[in-house]
Nucleic acid binder design. Structure first.
Lengths: 232, 232
DNA sequence: TCAAAAGTGTTGTTTGTACACCCATGA
DNA sequence: TCATGGGTGTACAAACAACACTTTTGA
């Protein structure tokens, strides 16, 4: 009955690169599932909780200072999710801003979510769940801050949102929505126009770099209340 | 280094009883934390995933058929969250409709969240997280179906929502919002008035008993799309 | 016919979308 | 002065809160 069980953490680290949403993975050199691509992670140590563990393990793959957001997605615990010793996994979503280019080990590369190579174990399901969480939170929180550089033009931000959401986004309305929610503020600077000319774009930044829920239109709220809530 | 680690599941089972949001807990008879109140749960078995495990363990406390909704909240994994052998916990939110009155063991009773007795370990934090999740999802999903009887009057539903949310809810607007989202439909029957008289109330039911996200006003959606999404 | 409870009508505000129009720059 | 991208103004529709008003019952 007391078959040994390990606990591991796994992270789907997402970044917009070359206009596409990509995930960091490393290629397994040894069985099981050798040759397939796996998410970064590993065993939970005795002296750390799952949050510290995932940050420690990511530090071996990327500079942790470049991970702007990390959150639990779910526990994956099918008894047969990996062969051999049972392993229960806590899965995380991690985000890296689009202007970072972390040094990664030789066996590790980025892959567009739209064209994932064969993945190890149940890692494809973890990537899907992370993507879904990202899509949802982009709509009702300020989570864009974790995908964008510190300063950016609206059209650059538009491309990030479009890539992450998987559908076209209007720059006009994106600016309007984020400004009305007071998530965006102009820096006062402008970016030089491209080679084809055009009006120079104003630079913006996110007002906050911690997660805020902007459920302005979430209903059934107490009579006459604000609409911003901090998430601890 | 390889200190033994157990994996347990814990459930914050919530129900509206006597007009208040209450949680199911049992009183520990033995150390550690003897006398304090703990959430139902226990060790993960080798042949089950965490979802099956929590349902199995709840079956020992309440009739599982009365649990209308269950979902993962988060992993609690502080190395010192319990004394002795390390235990990593997957916490769940469970919901029971207000008209159910499950038979529970002698050491187990319901407690209003507003007046929780001393709790064991980190179980108070789990209850808080479950409550927060419930509050959020009541606003943007049809999760009310899991708290309400199959058929109910609007004013009964109003009391459920008010108790779960912790603030007053207008019956007028509650009916309007849920109807507009097509979450509610009239049964055609009416409930007899109370002793003081009054117009008999029409009975309603939820149109769906599986979780639906009604993020009608979630922004940045693709140009011209529907507003209901099924959650698997 | 009055009090009590339920339900509908109406109004105003906020949020978001769509689209036309104006602005600043390089060639 | 024209093409190119950036930004604003305006109009419209949907969702919701607030509150007045009507309906249906028991006493």
């Amino acid at each position: 009955m007391a078959r040994p069980t390990e606990h591991e953490v796994l992270a789907a680290v997402l970044q917009i690169r070359e206009g596409a949403l990509q995930v960091l993975a490393w290629q397994r050199a040894r069985p099981p599932d050798s040759g397939r691509w796996a998410l970064p992670g590993g065993r939970l140590r005795d002296d750390e909780d799952v949050e510290r563990s995932v940050l420690r393990q990511l530090a071996e793959k990327v500079d942790v200072r470049e991970v702007t957001h990390i959150e639990q997605i779910a526990v994956f615990s099918d008894p047969d999710r990996v062969p051999g010793t049972r392993r229960v996994a806590t899965a995380f979503l991690g985000l890296v801003p689009s202007d970072a280019d972390p040094v990664v080990p030789a066996d590790t590369t980025w892959h567009p979510l739209a064209a994932l190579p064969p993945t190890a174990f149940d890692h494809a399901a973890i990537v899907d769940a992370a993507h879904e969480r990202l899509r949802a939170k982009l709509s009702y929180t300020n989570l864009g801050f974790a995908l964008a550089p510190r300063e950016f033009t609206i059209s650059a931000l538009r491309e990030l949102y479009a890539a992450a959401l998987g559908h076209p986004v209007s720059a006009t309305n994106l600016q309007r929505v984020l400004t009305r929610r007071r998530l965006l503020e102009p820096t006062g600077e402008v970016a030089p126009p491209g080679p084809a000319g055009g009006r120079p774009a104003a630079l913006f930044r996110f007002t906050d770099h911690s997660l805020l829920v902007t459920d302005a239109f979430a209903v059934l709220r107490p009579p006459g209340e604000g609409s911003r809530v901090a998430v601890p």
